[in-house]
Design a binder for these strands. Structure first.
Lengths: 142, 142
DNA sequence: TCCTGGTCGTTGGTAGGACCAACGATAGCC
DNA sequence: GGCTATCGTTGGTCCTACCAACGACCAGGA
């Protein structure tokens, strides 16, 4: 691609390119494992919060309630999570991580770790720390 | 949002958050000016390359040929670009930037500059330089 | 000269992430 | 009992990014 004077070297552009590469590697690794990012995020939240409602999961992961439904449909079908009606509140489902789900989460966490290594591969350890510190300052709420 | 141990602090996550903020500011500023990123990228390429075919524009901007069509439809309708059949090759259109287009490009370039300032606002000048240097190393092809 | 392979603009479709509005059912408060 | 809010769910939208295929056209070799 021809270097575009008015576009390349803009921080917004560099950020989008670096992110595109990272998300590409991530999506590729997750796809090879048969999942998408939403599946991992939901399972990670479920493990951390313990059994909870779909609305709680949505809030914890910043995933829209309507999208939570579809992702849980997948996870349920795969036997990684289970929905049960909440006896204390009949509007709610209690969602819980199965044993298979917990095991799968560990596998996917390792996949995710490998992706981080691939993304940061061009940088030294000190540079990685610097980058993360600066990115944290740029990112919202944190 | 509850901090998710297995997700937050991952470089891929920080990158996506920082990028989301930057792209949000960018999209907002462009939307206020009545355009999207593609419109700017295409006009920037057109100014830099001079009159050329749609396929050339697609290659220069890494925008798919099929998307170039729709964006040029907009720009033509706004009087910012013009398509003419290429007499030397009847498969092609020659696309050129009108005077209005060149003027609009300058305006939008200033808008883009303002966004960069807003994005990097949390960082000092030295930190900004460091960040850009590191991001360049992470981004593909350059 | 014909044929083949490649390119051009264009149409139409897909995918993922992120949203939003609305519904019936249900809970909690006054 | 009535009002308001929340729950899960359905069914959309938008944007960026792709990909496949079409008819038209060009350039090369046989």
């Amino acid at each position: 691609m021809t270097t575009l004077r008015r576009v390349a070297d803009r921080p917004t552009w560099l950020l989008s390119r670096a992110n595109a590469r990272a998300q590409g590697l991530l999506a590729e690794a997750f796809a090879a494992a048969g999942v998408r990012g939403y599946h991992f995020r939901l399972m990670a939240a479920l493990e951390q919060l313990g059994p909870c409602s779909q609305a709680d999961l949505g809030r914890a992961t910043a995933i829209d309630r309507s999208d939570v439904v579809a992702v849980l449909d997948d996870l349920d079908a795969w036997g990684l999570t289970r929905r049960k009606p909440d006896p204390a509140d009949r509007r709610r489902n209690v969602v819980l991580l199965t044993e298979d789900g917990a095991a799968r989460l560990e596998e996917l966490d390792a996949v995710l770790g490998g992706v981080q290594e691939a993304v940061l591969e061009p940088l030294s350890a000190a540079e990685r720390a610097t980058l993360l510190r600066l990115l944290r300052r740029l990112a919202p709420e944190g």
